[in-house]
Structure formats: structure tokens, C-alpha cells
Nucleic acid binder design. Structure first.
Lengths: 204, 204
DNA sequence: GGGGAAACAGACTGGATGGTCTGTTATATC
DNA sequence: GATATAACAGACCATCCAGTCTGTTTCCCC
């Protein structure tokens, strides 16, 4: 078996350029030629790495979901290092995203998931990739919420399952708000309210 | 001046069909031909009513924003009829959206605003239409929030301005969550948390 | 150092798509 | 009932765009 030169740098360059353009204009409005011009790369390179444009979309989503999962793990680990109280961990977790929001928002004008969710043209397989990602967040946060509710009986009865989803909701909604108003700082402010809600619920 | 037959029914049919398809696939992925097939209408009719596809987008946005504003006014008026307490009015306001969510979500799989926000290809003019709409909600809700905070000192210090935006955030985030998980009921659940947050803040 | 396979390069194509253009029909005014 | 004009109808066009195809280069293995 012969192993010629490594193609991953080219592949990554294409993915990076594609992600930037997709986040800005959406997937359908992103032409392969535009990606190639931005990468830069050629037609031959593109269709060597991705059989079709849809495969590029799938690859983008997979890479994004993986990075997303890593972020969740990292921030949760950092939050767990700050305190032993699961409620305080949750608050620290959200606070970390608030801090990250200011740096993240200007460079990343949105969430790649939304770019695909609002374009149902991709088959169910990759949409399930998003659903799996969301469920992962939910599971991870739900166990913390349950532990927190155990220690700190909530001020009012709430459904913890959908509360876990509230993190995703606030993130996506905040992104949209920030983008619609052309002001990245909105994301942080919306996340702060989620934190306040948790603080009130668990009496912190 | 001669006034031939009325064109508004055709125009509306085109707008209705276009809105359905745009909400499902996004604006860029919506071809004029697909709209014409769904309306149904012909090329001649389309380009008689809309000089270009982008003009259709603008018209869609304008119509949507107007309906949005009407909804805000109606629900706010209904909430104001329920109670004299601005805090309770706000809670009633959100509760109304929870009720509406179940009926709205299945027929309308998303918010038209997002379809355009995540596709920056349209010029700044129509994006400002969205921003104006958001600012309208913010202004309207902010005055209620300030009145509520006067009567019921908030449990913790929060920024009322961004709290007003939280309604928009929760709505958009909830829509995305519902769509990503293929379960419209999520929207209602997310709105419920927003209501709980308000209840906790104002001690209701 | 020759052979082979992956990694490109780039001209080319067929279909989709936004938009045009030349009619034709309906209706209110005179 | 002649006419003017908005409201359509639908063939047609120019462009763009995803995907193909035929090379050429690079690099490892023997």
C-alpha cells in the first residue's frame, strides 16, 4: 500500500471556509465555487474529499457536533472543579458560557445547527445528528439538575427535563437576537437571565 | 383611470405558498418555480406582482412583521383585561403564548424572521425590519416590566431591558428546539420556564 | 528508481433557476 | 362598444452551479 501526501490540510481548509460561509449565508445559498474561492481549493480537491455538496454539509455538522460535545465536557469539568454543590456547578457552568459568549459571538455569528435545521432539505440522518447532540446536553444537564433539586428543593415546581433544554433554547435564541440586532453582546445578557432563573429556583 | 380585475387574491396566494415553502426549506432554497407550482400561479403573474425574488422576500417579511405586531397587541390587550397588576399581566401574556404555541407550532414550523436572519444575503433594509419588530416588542414589554418592578421589587437585581428581549429569545429558541427534536410541544415547555422566571422574580 | 495510488488541477456539461418578452384576457370608464 | 390598462399566460433566455472527466503531481514502498 502506498501513502501519498496528506490531504487533511486541504480538507480542513475547505471545511473552515465552508463553515464561515454557511454561517453567514446558509447552506443552500453557499455555492461550492464560493467555498473553493475562499479556501482556496479546486473542484478536483473538493470532490475528491466530498462526494457531493450534501456530504460536505454532513461533514460540517459532524465536526461541529464533536466540537460542541467537547465544549460541554470541558465547561462541565471546569464547573465541577469550582464547587461540590451541583446547583452551584450549574450556575458556574452557565457563567462560563457568558464569559465565552463575548469572545465567541463576534467570530461565530451563529450556530451551525440552525443553518441546517431551518433547511429541511438534508435527510433525516443528519438532522438526527443534531437531535442526538441536543439529547446529549439534556442528559448531562438533567442529572445535575436532579442532584441540585435534591439538595435545594426548587422554589416552585418545574419540569427539570425541559429546564435542561432551556440552555440550548437560550443559546439559540440569544444567537438569533444578537444577529438580528447586530449586537453580539445580547447573547451574554440572555444567558445571564438563564443563570438568574437557576439562582432563584435553587435559592442561591 | 381604468381599474381591471383585482390582483390581490393572486398576490396573496403567492405569498401564502411562498411563506409555507420558505419556512420549510429556507429562502435561498425556495425556487420561484416551486412557489408558482404551489400557489398555483404563472411566471407572468409572479413578476407582475414582485419585480424580483428578493422583493417577494421583503413582502413576506413585511406581512409577517405586521401580523406579528397585531398578535402582540391582541395578546397584550387580553392580558391587560385579565388583571390590573402589570406583573400578573406579563404572566398572563406569556401564558397566552403557551396556549397558542400548541396550535401554532404544528402549522407553522418556525419563525419567518429566522429564515432571513440566517441568510444575510438580503440587504440591510429588510433586516432592519426585523430589528424594528424586535425593538417594538422590547419597548412594549419593558414598560410593563418597569411597572411590575415598581409594584413588586424583583427578588434579585436583573436588567429589565434584556429581560424584555427574553420573550423573543425563548420563542425563537423554542421554535428551533421543537424543530430539531421534531416535537412541537417543546415550544410550550420553554415558554413555561420563562413564565416561571417572571413568577419567581416578582414573587407571584 | 520505478510503479502505484492518493491528492490534486481545471476544462467541461447538463440541468435548474431567476428573470424577460411578447402576447392575451378581463374590466372599468367614456 | 371602443379603449386603455392592470392582470395574467407561458415560451424563451442567460447565467449559475453541482457534479464529471481527463489529466498531472506528489509521495511512499519495493
Amino acid at each position: 500500500m502506498n501513502v501519498p501526501r496528506d490531504g487533511t490540510p486541504t480538507r480542513d481548509r475547505i471545511l473552515d471556509a465552508a463553515q464561515r460561509i454557511v454561517l453567514e449565508r446558509g447552506f443552500a445559498a453557499t455555492s461550492v465555487d464560493a467555498v473553493l474561492a475562499a479556501a482556496p481549493a479546486t473542484k478536483g480537491a473538493f470532490f475528491h474529499h466530498f462526494p457531493s455538496k450534501n456530504d460536505l454539509g454532513r461533514a460540517l455538522l459532524e465536526r461541529y457536533a464533536a466540537a460542541d460535545e467537547r465544549l460541554l465536557d470541558d465547561f462541565m469539568a471546569a464547573a465541577e472543579a469550582e464547587s461540590d454543590d451541583p446547583a452551584e456547578q450549574l450556575v458556574a457552568f452557565v457563567r462560563r458560557f457568558e464569559q465565552a459568549a463575548d469572545e465567541l459571538a463576534p467570530t461565530q455569528p451563529g450556530c451551525l445547527f440552525v443553518s441546517f435545521i431551518y433547511e429541511s432539505q438534508l435527510a433525516g440522518n443528519e438532522n438526527d445528528l443534531i437531535a442526538t447532540s441536543i439529547r446529549h446536553w439534556r442528559t448531562r444537564l438533567l442529572e445535575k439538575l436532579e442532584a441540585a433539586a435534591e439538595l435545594h428543593p426548587p422554589a416552585i415546581a418545574v419540569d427539570l427535563r425541559s429546564l435542561a433544554d432551556q440552555v440550548f433554547t437560550t443559546f439559540e435564541g440569544g444567537f438569533i437576537l444578537a444577529r438580528a440586532m447586530h449586537d453580539p453582546s445580547h447573547l451574554r445578557a440572555q444567558l445571564a437571565h438563564l443563570r438568574h432563573y437557576l439562582e432563584l429556583l435553587f435559592g442561591l
